[in-house]
Design a binder for these strands. Structure first.
Lengths: 216, 216
DNA sequence: CTATTTTTTTAGACAAGACTAAAAATTAAA
DNA sequence: TTTAATTTTTAGTCTTGTCTAAAAAAATAG
C-alpha cells in the first residue's frame, strides 16, 4: 500500500459518504487535486488489487476490502487528531495537516496502543466518529443544524467543513462540541436562524448551519 | 526534503560519528542497502542543495546545514522511541521500525510539544542522547563497558548495537539501562569479563561488552 | 436522431530514485 | 612505474505517479 494509493482510497471513501452509486473519475480528480487521467491510472491499479470495482465510464465503488482499508486509515487519522488535541495542546483547527501525515504510519500495535492510551475515544476533535479495528463506524445518525425547526434542541457533535477558517469562526462565536443549542427562530426566506447557546442568542447564516452536526 | 534525502542525511551523519574525514560512496551504499551508483546520484543532489560537500573520488562530508537537518531527524526518531516505550508499552527492541517512519513527520510544533509531553528526556530507550532543537548533542563522553578495568563501576546508559537479537539477549541476562554494574574480573586473553549487576555475577564476552555504554 | 458538449480514456513525456553494466579514476602491488 | 585491483562515476533502463494533448465514449440538446 503506497502513500498515494492510501490517499485515493480515503478520498473515494469520503465521497461515497455523500454520493450514491459509482464515483465519477472527475469527482475523484477534484477531491485529490489532480487530473482525471492520473485518476484513471490509479483506478486501474486499485481495481487490479481488488480494492475497488470499476467499469469504464461507469464510475468506481470500493469493494469490502477497499472500504476496510480506507476506514482503517480514517481511524488512524482521527485517533491521531485526538492525541494532538488532548495530549499535545493542538487546537482543533491545527491538527489536520499533521494527522494527514500520521495516518500513513504502518503499525498495528502502534494504533491499537494509541487507542487504548487515549481511552478508546468515540469521536475526533471535530466530532467525527472513529472507526473501530474492524472498520465499523458507529452511525448515530446525526443531523445538520440547518434541518432543525423552531424550538428544537440538540447537542453539537461535529462539523462538516473542518477548514481552519470555519473552525476559527466557531471558536470566536463560542460554538463548540458538546454545547447545547436551541433554535429560537428560523427565517424561511434564507434559512438563517437565531440560536441560543448558554443563554446567549445570535444569528447564523444557512451556510454556517449547514456545516454543524447535531445529536438530537 | 524528500523521504529518501532525509534517510541519506541520517545515514551519513551516523557514519560520520564513527569515521573521520570524507565518507566514501561505498560506505554510504552499504549503510543504505543500495548501490554505489544510486548513492552518486543522491550525493549530487544533496550537494547542490548545500547539505554536503563532496569532491569526486574524495568522499562526502555534511555541511553545517546538513548536520543540523540530520540531527533534527535523529531528534525526532529518539523522541518517538521514548514515546513508544513510555506511553504505549512498546519494548525497547520493538520501537525502531516504527520510529523510522515517525521521524519523517513534518511539524515543528508536533515535535516540540512531544518533547515537552515526555518531560524533555535526555536519552532514548537505548541510552542514545537526544539532540536539542538546535541540533546540539550533549556529549557526556560515555565509555564502552569493555574499556572498564577490574573493580571499576558505572551505570549502563546505552547500547551500540540496537538489533532486536542483542536487546533480547540483554533483557534475558537482566542487563538494562540505569542498572549499576561492577567489573569483578577481566580475562586479558579474550577480554571477556565477569560483571556484577544487583548482587548477581556472570560472564560476558568481549563482543557483548563492546556494545554497552557506561557512564562512570 | 443527429450534433454538440462533457466525461473518460489513451498515448506519450517527465521527474525521482533505483538498478545493471561498463567506463574511468584512484590506489595498491610487483 | 607499469600493471592489477578497487572504487567511483557514467550511461542507459525501469517503476511510480504525475502531466498534457488528443481520441473515444457517453450524455445532452435541438
Amino acid at each position: 500500500m503506497t502513500l498515494s494509493e492510501e490517499n485515493y482510497l480515503k478520498a473515494i471513501y469520503h465521497i461515497s459518504d455523500v454520493c450514491e452509486g459509482g464515483i465519477s473519475t472527475n469527482a475523484i480528480a477534484e477531491k485529490m487535486n489532480t487530473k482525471a487521467s492520473s485518476v484513471t491510472d490509479m483506478i486501474k491499479k486499485l481495481s487490479e488489487k481488488g480494492l475497488l470495482n470499476y467499469k469504464r465510464y461507469k464510475g468506481s465503488e470500493l469493494t469490502e476490502k477497499g472500504k476496510f482499508v480506507a476506514a482503517n486509515i480514517i481511524r488512524k487519522h482521527r485517533l491521531w487528531e485526538v492525541f494532538l488535541v488532548e495530549k499535545l495542546n493542538f487546537t482543533w483547527d491545527e491538527v489536520h495537516d499533521v494527522a494527514e501525515q500520521l495516518e500513513h504510519i504502518k503499525s498495528e500495535k502502534l494504533i491499537n496502543q494509541l487507542d487504548e492510551f487515549l481511552g478508546f475515544p468515540k469521536r475526533d476533535p471535530h466530532g467525527d466518529p472513529i472507526p473501530d479495528k474492524d472498520g465499523n463506524v458507529s452511525d448515530n445518525a446525526d443531523v445538520l443544524l440547518v434541518t432543525l425547526h423552531e424550538n428544537e434542541k440538540g447537542i453539537i457533535v461535529g462539523v462538516k467543513d473542518s477548514s481552519s477558517s470555519f473552525l476559527k469562526y466557531l471558536d470566536k462565536q463560542g460554538i463548540a462540541l458538546g454545547k447545547k443549542v436551541k433554535v429560537i427562530d428560523k427565517e424561511p426566506f434564507d434559512n438563517s436562524m437565531k440560536i441560543r447557546i448558554k443563554k446567549e442568542e445570535f444569528m447564523i447564516s444557512q451556510q454556517i448551519a449547514n456545516n454543524i452536526y447535531i445529536k438530537k
